[in-house]
């Protein structure tokens, strides 16, 4: 079994992306990851013995992020402000999308409910199978499928509504 430090190093970016997606603020996302890794370090013997330690850490991140969202319910304004304007230069492909379009999609994503956002993030960005998404979010596999369907559908509606995509 790999040591906790190796597990943490391999999964840290994924935890950060999930936390960022959920809380919408990079500093707060960093805090969430820090808390999760600290908590994980204190229980490292148990975690190292698990079948899928990254799934456990993702689940912890999801739960911590939910706690944060619950602790400050009125968040919409700040989430929208935490757009990806400074991240657009990091896009890995050469398509000619403007930063405005990607930023707009980001803002549309932030309009989705937290559960749909996290399911979409884990599927579209992290490429996790339904079972692992269910483990991370505490939903059933069927619920994950429904949330994914609704999330994508809602996103498409938002895109159509904002006239980014024309049917």
């Amino acid at each position: 079994m790999p040591p906790f430090t190796t597990i943490a190093a391999s999964v840290r970016d994924r935890l950060y992306r999930l936390a960022l997606r959920m809380v919408g603020d990079d500093g707060e996302a960093e805090d969430v990851v820090q808390e999760v890794l600290l908590s994980g370090w204190q229980r490292r013997r148990e975690i190292e013995a698990l079948d899928n330690p990254p799934a456990w850490l993702l689940k912890m991140t999801h739960n911590r992020a939910i706690d944060r969202l619950r602790s400050r319910r009125v968040r919409t304004t700040n989430e929208r402000a935490a757009a990806v304007a400074d991240q657009t230069s990091r896009t890995p492909h050469c398509l000619a999308e403007s930063a405005d379009t990607l930023g707009h999609i980001h803002r549309l994503m932030q309009q989705l409910p937290a559960d749909q956002r996290s399911v979409l993030q884990l599927r579209e960005v992290e490429g996790l199978p339904y079972r692992e998404i269910a483990e991370t979010t505490g939903l059933t596999v069927d619920q994950v499928k429904v949330y994914l369907h609704r999330g994508r559908g809602k996103l498409r509606q938002l895109l159509l509504h904002e006239q980014i995509v024309e049917r």
Binding site: Y16, R21, R90, L102, H106, Q121
Partner: peptide
């Protein structure tokens, strides 16, 4: 492209 971009984000 947005999904790709989000996947390229790394922790500070």
């Amino acid at each position: 492209a947005y999904w790709e971009q989000q996947g390229a984000i790394t922790a500070p």
